[in-house]
Design a protein around this nucleic acid. Structure first.
Length: 468
RNA sequence: GGAGAGGUGGCGGAGUGGUCGAACGCGUCGGUCUCGAAAACCGAAGUACCGGCAACGGUACCGUGGGUUCGAAUCCCACCCUCUCCGCCA
């Protein structure tokens, strides 16, 4: 589970796997009636031709992820599959030709019996060859589906989050005397209720009330307005329930089903809007000049957080349900690196405007999510915890998801199609942002000042305090 | 939920079981014409995989999966989806 270091992952659908799941007692996911999902004929996540052309590079990438070399076994399988395919196709070609002649012979009144016999003999052998081809193909797909994306060249090597590299630090944590944590503040204000949430839904849910509920809404509104007006993202209101195919497309399935909630009739609750937004371009061929495509959405996110029992149990840091504003970009391959920086900057802008201190780190190879080839995490300063905590994760997935969901584009005047690049990032997590505002803007009397940029969204309110 | 209709290429829309990867129209692209454009005319053009240095050849795909057949877009079965009407509903 921790194999690829799926992290707490504010952006990947996967929940945290930093925590060794086996140690904790019965972290039973609250899901019932899990519906079995059938492997959707996946597009290969990895380019077999690229592996054929340069197996060493592929294995080198795996090694940086801490994985054993796989190219020899993959190529061997691939070779056998192609041989079977060729044999199968040749048989079909002969059958087609014979069938054509049979029609011809019958029309001309000639004896078609020898041809009929030949086809009959062919059909004896055909199914076995087809079976062989399918079996090898499925085997190959299964292997490829379980291999994470290869890290980009400029991603630092490392084992876990301690090896992440800080790239910048913005803002200075204010000296808050005797800082309180968000849940202390919220409960004292009477606007954040965990007991009420427990009564309704159990652990890892929160009820917000009054001005705090409104602050949450204001934060999300502010983010959406900023991204749409200033960064050219199109606002989307997507489904929150998706099918297997969509979950495969962004690589939540097949490996991370445990982290997702599923309805009794087989829908998956989205763990992030990345899933519906990115899959919007699934199975399509885009024009080069409509790229980059930039999409944003504020949605609830649902995570079963299996395996993270005992972690961040107090407060609303880690919830089964939270709001997040998501950014998704679909780009040409040559655009994705620049787009990654741009997206990260857009997310950082939110924190800058809110006056929240943060730092941005490049995740090392050991801490990156399954689908990412490079990831920046943005960590916001939480005075109550005296720590930087993840509030956004911006990943360039290269063509990994695109190949999977068959999202291609065609360059102008070009005949061939190629896979687009997909990027996603939180811009940013609304729940955690609320926490950050509360802790950074807390006053000695327990009231919370409203950041300037949010005042218009709060009808000019200056502060949230005990008596309104 | 009940009743009916239908799912074919970017779109619309044909398609007696055999040369249909698919008529025709629109749209798109290239060209002719033009000072330029429009119109007109000529031509090109699906996706993916396999083999090949290439030219090119082959295979699959007409919602999905099975079946019948020497041969299936065309016949049979199951499923999915869409549309219309009725009911219910934010």
């Amino acid at each position: 589970m921790t194999l690829f270091g799926e992290r707490d992952g504010y952006d990947q659908g996967g929940a945290s796997a930093r925590d060794p799941p086996s140690r904790w007692t019965a972290p039973v996911p609250p899901t019932i009636n899990r519906v079995p999902f059938t492997p959707v004929t996946p597009g290969p996540m990895h380019d077999l031709r690229a592996i054929r052309d340069n197996p060493e590079a592929f294995d080198r990438g795996l090694a940086r992820r801490g994985l054993a070399p796989l190219s020899p076994s993959i190529l061997e399988l691939d070779q056998r599959r192609r041989a079977a395919q060729t044999a199968f196709q040749e048989m079909q070609a002969r059958r087609n030709e014979a069938s054509r002649l049979i029609g011809q012979y019958k029309k001309d009144g000639k004896d078609a019996q020898p041809l009929l016999d030949e086809v009959a003999a062919l059909k004896e052998r055909l199914p076995a060859t087809e079976e062989e081809e399918k079996r090898l193909g499925a085997e190959l797909d299964a292997i490829l589906a379980g291999i994470p994306n290869l890290p980009a060249d400029d991603v630092p090597d490392g084992k876990d989050e301690h090896d992440n590299v800080e790239v910048r630090r913005v803002g200075t944590p204010a000296a808050v005397p005797a800082p309180k944590q968000h849940f202390e503040l919220g409960e004292a204000l009477g606007l954040m209720q965990f007991d009420a949430a427990a009564k309704l839904s159990g652990a890892r849910f929160t009820v917000l009330r009054g001005q705090l509920a409104r602050l949450e809404r204001a934060i999300g509104d502010f983010m959406l307005d900023t991204h749409t007006r200033e960064f050219g993202y199109e606002e989307v209101s997507p489904p929150l329930l998706v099918k297997d195919e969509a979950a495969y497309g962004t690589a939540q399935l097949p490996k991370f089903a445990e982290d997702l909630f599923q309805t009794t009739n087989g829908y998956w609750l989205i763990p992030t809007a990345e899933v519906p937004l990115t899959n919007l371009v699934a199975d399509s061929i885009l024009d080069a000049d409509e790229l980059p495509l930039r999409l944003t959405a504020r949605t609830p996110c649902f995570r079963s957080e299996a395996g993270s029992a005992g972690r961040d149990t107090r407060g609303m840091i880690r919830q089964h349900q939270f709001y997040k504003v998501e950014l998704v970009s679909i780009t040409r391959p040559d655009q994705s690196q620049a787009e990654h920086e741009r997206m990260t900057a857009a997310a950082e802008t939110i924190l800058t405007r809110l006056g929240l201190p943060f730092r941005t780190v490049t995740l090392c190879t050991g801490d990156m999510g399954f689908a990412a080839q490079k990831t920046y995490d943005i960590e916001v300063w939480l005075p109550g915890q005296d720590a930087y905590r993840e509030i956004s994760s911006c990943s360039n997935c290269g063509d990994f998801q695109a190949r999977r969901m068959k999202a291609r584009f065609r360059a102008k005047g070009d005949k061939a199609t190629q896979a687009v690049h997909t990027l996603n990032g939180s811009g940013v997590a609304v729940g955690r942002c609320l926490i950050a505002v509360m802790e950074n803007y807390q006053q000695a009397d327990g009231s919370i000042l409203i950041p300037d940029v949010l005042k218009p969204y709060m009808n000019g309110l200056e502060r949230i305090s005990r008596n309104g």
